[in-house]
Simulated scan of single mutants.
Amino acid sequence: MAISLQKGQKIDLRKSSGEALTNFCVGVNWGAIETEKAGLFGFGKKKVVEDVDLDLSCIMLDQSGNLVDWIYSPDYNAWLSKNNYPLGKLSSKDGGLKHSGDDRQGDVGGDDGLDNEIITIDLNRVSPTIDKIYFFLNIYLNQGQSFDFSQIPFAKIRMYEGTSTRVNTVHSNYDIVTDSSYRGKRALILGKLYRKNGEWKFDAIGEPSEDQIFVQTMQRIIKDYK
């Protein structure tokens, strides 16, 4: 049975059999915003779907809190290059973490049961220099958009065994938008994988912020969460 995580909860990465969980996915699933507006000349109503672009990212730190590696969308590389930030990529240097790519819409018409953005993890391939892996989520607003986590119909993070297109066994899940502290917030530090006594563990941080872009969230983690 999957663990329903609460903010600040720490768990061991072990299957129900007691075996260490080393190959799994961290996935985020969310819905597009659907509203009803008056039709032409005020007659009737029409459904309006507003795309929701969330960005799942992660950074990897060593024991001293120094940035070792990162995964975030390369779609922002033109801006990142102009501002002298590390360019986005979808795979870690050691091949232990891989991102499924950017989803700019969210589920339309309800939850389809699959995650919109996924980071696949093989802990056996993660470099021994990496001590902590932080996962975070940011809302990207297109021109004319203005919303926060509280307006998204559903948003969930889960850890599961499987692939980007198939869920075998869900290990743990965390419902994001039911927490009232996320109102008015556009960024969320989801949690971290960390080494302790030779084993990997997970800490559900669940800390929201008003960061406007993922680079700010990266800097926040490096500064405050060493």
Rank of each mutant, 00 (worst) to 15 (best):
G162V: 07
G65I: 05
A155C: 15
A187V: 01
I189D: 05
N66C: 07
D203G: 00
S57N: 15
I221F: 10
S209F: 04
F43M: 08
D107L: 07
N66P: 03
P86N: 12
I213M: 12
V126H: 09
K7N: 02
D179P: 00
D175Q: 09
T35C: 00
L67T: 11
I130A: 08
V48T: 09
S57M: 08
G191Q: 10
D131A: 15
Y174I: 01
P74H: 08
D175S: 05
Q145H: 07
V167F: 00
T169S: 12
Q212Y: 03
I3R: 05
G65L: 07
K201Q: 15
G144F: 05
Q105N: 14
N168A: 13
G27F: 00
S100E: 06
I205P: 03
D112Q: 15
D12W: 01
Q219A: 12
V49P: 03
I133W: 10
I133S: 11
L137V: 01
K156D: 13
L193P: 07
N173K: 12
A155D: 02
D131C: 14
V48M: 09
D112R: 14
S181H: 04
S17Q: 06
R158P: 00
G106H: 08
S146N: 15
D211S: 14
Y160N: 04
E207S: 09
R220C: 03
G18N: 06
G65A: 08
C58M: 13
T129K: 15
N197F: 10
D224E: 13
S150T: 00
L5A: 01
E36H: 05
V215M: 13
G31N: 08
Y174P: 04
Y182S: 00
A187I: 02
G44A: 04
R14V: 15
E36S: 11
E161F: 02
S100T: 14
P153Q: 07
E161N: 07
V52Q: 08
G206P: 01
G31E: 13
F136M: 10
Y182Q: 04
H171W: 13
N29I: 03
I157P: 00
D12V: 07
F202G: 01
A155H: 01
D179H: 09
S64R: 14
I205H: 02
I33W: 06
D148C: 09
A20I: 10
N197I: 02
S127H: 13
I189Q: 11
D175H: 04
R195F: 09
K223G: 02
I152H: 02
D69Q: 13
Q212D: 09
P208W: 02
D75L: 14
G184T: 05
V48C: 06
L13H: 03
L141P: 01
S164A: 15
V28I: 14
V52S: 11
D115W: 00
S64G: 11
Q219W: 03
S81Y: 14
D12Y: 05
E50G: 10
T217E: 12
A78M: 12
I71A: 10
Y85D: 13
D203E: 09
R125D: 11
K93M: 15
F24H: 02
L67G: 12
L114T: 14
N197G: 11
E50P: 05
R220M: 11
S164P: 03
S209W: 03
N83S: 09
R158H: 01
M218S: 04
F136Q: 04
S172P: 04
L61H: 02
T129L: 13
M1Q: 05
